[in-house]
């Protein structure tokens, strides 16, 4: 715990202050986020938890720059993200954020290499460097021998590794993983979590969005959301202390 706190003393990557997000659903306005304040530093390993409807997904979309808040301040590496337009957000997503999805979201007809290459294409990297870099990252996640396989020739765990390689390939500031083990059996899930642990040890910043306690348990810090507000934000995940963790059975 102490050593973790020392490591968490990196510069602030994400600085959110009092952000809200309202959706119009037919006649009524849904307040998905009611004023969330959060700071995430470089090389943190943080889990965002909460029951369905807690604003967890909305917060993740904000953090991932897929959406902008209705009000409040959001600075990403000191840059104001809240007022960026679509293309500026796309550039931030491309260079600063590595997404890992529950359903992997690989392009089905492209090889692992081409999938991993994609963010590099959008970043405007020349072909030779793209291939070199993609193979490097695929090797790092243990798929150096699967570069020319298509997703349907890979196991679920391998697919998620390709997705993680794709998230890592542009050297992002954060890795944003949304239920990364949700579609995997527990053994494979555990292997993926080991990979995240490894990435964390190598200095990456990881944000894990999950409703599974044992997955969240891998993180060094846990943020609980309820009704669009941060209910709890604490270091570590210590279930044996019998903390009042909210019921999180479904999303």
């Amino acid at each position: 715990m102490t050593s973790d706190h020392v490591r968490q003393a990196g510069p602030i990557v994400i600085d959110i202050e009092n952000i809200t997000k309202d959706y119009v659903m037919g006649e009524e306005i849904v307040h998905a986020l009611r004023g969330v304040t959060l700071q995430i530093r470089r090389n943190e390993y943080i889990a965002i938890m909460g029951p369905s409807g807690s604003g967890k997904s909305t917060l993740m979309n904000m953090l991932g720059c897929l959406d902008t808040p209705t009000s409040g301040r959001y600075e990403f590496n000191g840059k104001n993200v809240a007022e960026m337009d679509d293309d500026e957000l796309a550039a931030v997503r491309n260079r600063e954020i590595g997404f890992v999805f529950q359903t992997f979201n690989l392009l089905p007809r492209s090889t692992s290499l081409r999938n991993v290459e994609l963010p590099l294409i959008y970043a405007g990297i020349e072909p030779e460097r793209r291939i070199e870099r993609a193979i490097q990252v695929l090797t790092d996640v243990g798929l150096g021998d699967r570069t020319h396989h298509k997703p349907n020739e890979l196991s679920g765990g391998q697919r998620q590794r390709v997705a993680i390689a794709r998230a890592l390939v542009n050297g992002p500031s954060i890795i944003l993983a949304d239920e990364p083990t949700g579609n995997l059996d527990s053994k494979t899930g555990e292997e993926i979590m080991e990979l995240f642990e490894d990435l964390y040890e190598r200095g990456n910043t990881i944000i894990l969005v999950t409703h599974e306690r044992d997955i969240a348990a891998h993180a060094r810090r846990t943020v609980h959301l309820r009704d669009g507000l941060v209910e709890m934000d604490h270091a570590g995940f210590i279930p044996e202390l019998d903390l009042p963790i909210p019921e999180t059975t479904s999303t």
Partner: peptide
């Protein structure tokens, strides 16, 4: 649609 979403998440701009 989902592929388009993924591409956008990976940094594809509108014009891409």
């Amino acid at each position: 649609t989902k592929e388009i979403g993924t591409r956008k998440a990976l940094g594809a701009r509108r014009r891409t």
